[in-house]
Structures are given as C-alpha cells and as structure tokens.
Simulated assay, not measured.
Amino acid sequence: MMTHLLLVRHAQASFGTDDYDRLSDHGHRQANLLGSWLAAQPWRYTSIHAGNQRRHVQTLEALYAAAAAAQRVLPAMMVDADWNEFDHECLLRGYRAFAPDDPDLESLDHPLPTARG
C-alpha cells in the first residue's frame, strides 16, 4: 500500500481587515470547494493536522463538513501550533544583520499599508 502526504495551505484569509486570522468570503468558498473535492477522492485519510490559527481550523472545518455530507468518516483533527506560520519579517530583519546591503530587503523599510473596510 502506498502512502501519500497531502499538504494544504489555508484558504484565503481576510488581509487588510481588522482580523486577518479568519477566512474571507472568497476563502470560505475556496474551502468548501476544496472540501468537496477532497471528500470525493478515494483516499483513506489516516491523520489530519492543522495549526491553531483560526484560518487553518476554518479551512479544515469545510473539509469535515463535506466529508460528513458524503458520509465519509475522517480521523480527528490534531491541532499543533508548530504548523502555524512564522513571522517572516522578523526572520528577514535578522538576516539583514548579516547582509545589510541586500536590495531585496529594502521592502522592510516600507511596510505594506493595510486596507480597512
């Protein structure tokens, strides 16, 4: 029997709003479509892991809902913060100490504006 590993990034989050750590309306549609597609696959899922960020859990909730609608039983979700995203800007600032003239790091001097609404 062949074993496969399937990695899924969370659906679209709510960038530029007061709460990034939730799915946008588009993200909910993406998660529902993904859940339906995954539930239709013949694969047997032996474990399901997620970070503890809300957008991770919301994405997987759509998978569980689609599986239930298709009368498929999935293993319990194992939540582990080690799957969370890391602070990439902090990592790049640390790198800057070793490469202060790297032109790719200029964007750290001008953070992206966040849209409200």
Rank of each mutant, 00 (worst) to 15 (best):
S14R: 04
A39S: 13
T46H: 08
N52Q: 13
H28S: 13
A67C: 03
T3S: 14
G51T: 00
H26G: 12
A62F: 10
L33A: 14
L5N: 06
R72Q: 13
Q30F: 03
S24H: 04
T17C: 12
D80K: 01
G27W: 00
R55K: 04
G16N: 04
M77Q: 01
G94T: 12
A65G: 08
W37A: 12
A69C: 10
L23I: 00
D80S: 00
D19G: 07
S24K: 03
F15W: 04
H49F: 14
R93V: 13
N84H: 06
Q58I: 05
L6G: 05
L6R: 07
M77H: 00
R93K: 14
D18P: 01
F15D: 14
D82I: 08
A70G: 01
Y20K: 10
A11S: 11
Q12A: 13
L33K: 08
A76R: 10
S24D: 14
F86L: 13
S36T: 14
N32S: 15
A39M: 13
D82K: 09
A76E: 15
M2D: 14
A40C: 05
Q71M: 10
Q12V: 10
F86A: 07
A67N: 04
L60C: 05
Q41E: 05
L6V: 13
W43S: 11
R72T: 07
H28E: 15
S36P: 07
L7C: 03
L38S: 06
L23C: 07
G16Y: 01
C90Q: 15
A70K: 01
Q12P: 06
R55F: 01
S24G: 12
L63M: 08
N84M: 04
A65R: 08
S14D: 11
T59V: 08
H56N: 02
L60Y: 12
R44K: 15
Q41S: 02
L34D: 02
R22V: 08
A70D: 08
E61S: 05
S24C: 10
A39V: 14
W43F: 13
L34N: 04
T46P: 03
A50T: 02
S36E: 15
A40L: 04
D21E: 07
T59A: 09
V79P: 03
A67H: 05
Q53T: 07
L33T: 14
A65T: 12
Y45R: 00
L33S: 12
A65H: 06
T17Y: 07
A81H: 08
V8L: 09
A69P: 11
A31C: 08
L74T: 02
M2L: 09
W43N: 11
L92H: 11
T46W: 09
A31P: 05
E85D: 12
G35D: 08
G51W: 02
D18T: 13
A62R: 01
L7N: 01
N84P: 09
H88M: 15
D19E: 15
P42K: 00
L6K: 04
G35W: 12
L7E: 09
L92V: 07
P75D: 00
A67G: 02
T3H: 13
A76G: 10
T59P: 09
E85T: 09
S47V: 07
A70S: 01
V73N: 00
L33F: 09
Y95V: 06
Y64E: 07
V57I: 11
A11M: 10
N84G: 06
T59F: 06
D80G: 00
S47C: 14
Q12M: 04
E85G: 06
Y20D: 15
L23M: 01
D21P: 00
Y20P: 11
D21I: 03
A11G: 11
R72P: 10
